[in-house]
Design a protein around this nucleic acid. Structure first.
Lengths: 149, 149
DNA sequence: TCATAAATTGAATATTATTCAATTATTTAT
DNA sequence: ATAAATAATTGAATAATATTCAATTTATGA
């Protein structure tokens, strides 16, 4: 056994997918060359960033999901993007947004379980510049990435 | 002009994409039939829910993004899924999670602008059972759906 | 250890994407 | 308003890719 599935998951999580031109053509009742042309246009414009798979994350051992609200130290206000991009690099991070309001950053983190999440917080979230954290653990995800579960 | 692109966006936002088996085969240095077999297995198990496009949402007229933290009335605690699923149906909703902590629900909402978001809150979020709301508006999304922007 | 099921693979086929050239529609400049 | 230039649509031909199938190997479990 080579555990090919986990490597497929890792690659299709970010990309390695493609639109189904002929299916779209049928659905929209247009020639497939027209669909093809318009998709390439969207890609060139940068409107489409990637094609990817959406998972039942419990089934790929990423069942533990936490939203992390972060408050930054005042001296970091000038450049929140630096911290945001550093955090975004980690594979457990689904999303990072720089926000208005009571919190400057909001993260969505996926790990296998609470233990792994705890390790993650120690290594990634505990760092200079972050002065306050509130975590909201997801008990059930009803919809994710525009896909209803 | 038929505005085919916006219909393509609408369909590829949820699905109408497919994994690139031959690309995955090259990357993983395995025969494409092996990749095919393993992908079909993941699909049958329900581990893969869908294949979809990820967008630069500003460029598809969904540049206004808000995280909405919701507190439910005590009489709704017994069945938060009902409300969650009702909310999830709306196309502006990217995600809905039922959470622990100070807030019972967390939504991610995407609209064209603040006005549209305001209409959305009036129609969807102002409803019986929801007693407290906090909104966090995203100023910049650094990573979304595991894709760095 | 034998029997059964699961996973891997190559060769053949079916399906789908892509290229290209021609046509039509739209925009821009005069 | 008209001509010229650009952008979008499309069908036919080709290239690339997915899928099926049967054979083989590997793993599982009584």
């Amino acid at each position: 056994m080579k555990d090919i599935t986990s490597r497929i998951v890792e690659l299709t999580k970010h990309g390695h997918c493609t639109p189904q031109i002929s299916q779209l053509a049928k659905k929209l009742k247009e020639p497939s060359t027209t669909i093809h042309y318009n998709i390439k246009k969207l890609e060139k414009e940068g409107a489409i960033k990637s094609y990817k798979a959406v998972f039942d994350y419990k089934k790929i051992n990423e069942g533990f999901c936490v939203y992390v609200l972060i408050s930054l130290a005042p001296d970091e206000y000038g450049n929140p993007e630096k911290i945001a991009q550093d955090i975004a690099k980690h594979p457990q991070i689904e999303s990072v947004d720089i926000c208005t309001g009571d919190w400057e950053l909001i993260l969505k983190v996926r790990t296998a379980n609470q233990d792994e999440y705890y390790e993650f917080t120690k290594n990634v979230i505990s760092r200079k510049g972050i002065i306050k954290i509130k975590s909201l653990t997801s008990l059930k995800q009803v919809k994710t990435e525009f896909v209803e579960m």
